[in-house]
Amino acid sequence: MNKIFYIAKEEIKILFREKIFFTLLGVFVVMSLISSFLGFMATNTTTSIYNSSVKFLIQKGINNIPPNPMLSFGALTDFRNIIIYMFLIGALLAVVIGHRSFIRERKSGVLPILFSRPISSNTLFFGKALGIGITIFSIILSAFLIGILSSLLLPYRHLLFDDILRLIIFYIFSFFYLLFFGFVGLLFAIKTKSESLALFIPICIWVGISFVLPEIISGQNPTALLNPIAMGQVQVQNSVFFSLMQTYLQPFSIGGQYTSFALQLINNTSQTSLINVILNNLSNITTLFISIIGTSTLCIYSINKNNIGKDEIYE
């Protein structure tokens, strides 16, 4: 057990000395800040447009005007964009963290030394996993704090206890979502001979999960998931092809499941209580955990099997 902690500690220590890590973290933090601000801007402007429209309609003599739809969205509306940044930059960051954690060992040639010590491949994996986990956790935590802080700074909506609870669950779920991509990055860093390929493959997998599967399942455009509002309205197509795809591919569409669950958490107007939202998404949660366990198993298997240290790494 101690060995796992040593490996994890080493892992984090090295990562926090890498410039590229801070660059990515910086991009992520800035994006979180921008997303709160942009959410605020968009809501504000839309409300103003609504007010102008009301004036315009009254001038025309129309009095039967529906209430401002923005007001019905609940306090967490402005967090909608953060889903997308988790989905895009968060996942890429996680892939890079996982990738670096093992490529570093292979490049420096210390793997043979590590394996000549009394360390099992399980220990090595769990040490790495813990290191990756703690790193991702600290990123999620910073995103969470920034979110809370900015909603205090832009005090147009009050977060209730239920809102904060929803946010916390959203961030916890996001943590596991990113952890999955961290493990995908780790897996190919273990398996793939060339360093660049070890980064390209996870990114392709990510593109597949985020864009390709949702398209095939729903007939939507590949980037449809990037619009959090439109995302909530994806209609199931009335066609044999799409219902077939839906049946067989939906379980693999981790990206679509993530955004869907996240949106239900954030969009607290749906009158569905938090407990029900969670219950409705149990299958999504289960899929994610199965995927995490699956990639971990593959990682351990690959560490065992690969005779690492024999081959030189290049490119």
């Binding site: 930059i89 509002i229 439109a230």
Partner: peptide
């Protein structure tokens, strides 16, 4: 990721008519 996905997405989500499902103007009958 910034040029291909993030910036176009920001522009899209900032569109006032995109803030309301189905479009703001449609919702209030303009």
């Amino acid at each position: 990721i910034v040029f291909v996905l993030v910036i176009p997405q920001i522009g899209d989500t900032l569109d006032p008519d995109n803030q309301v499902p189905g479009g703001l103007f449609n919702k209030i009958g303009i």
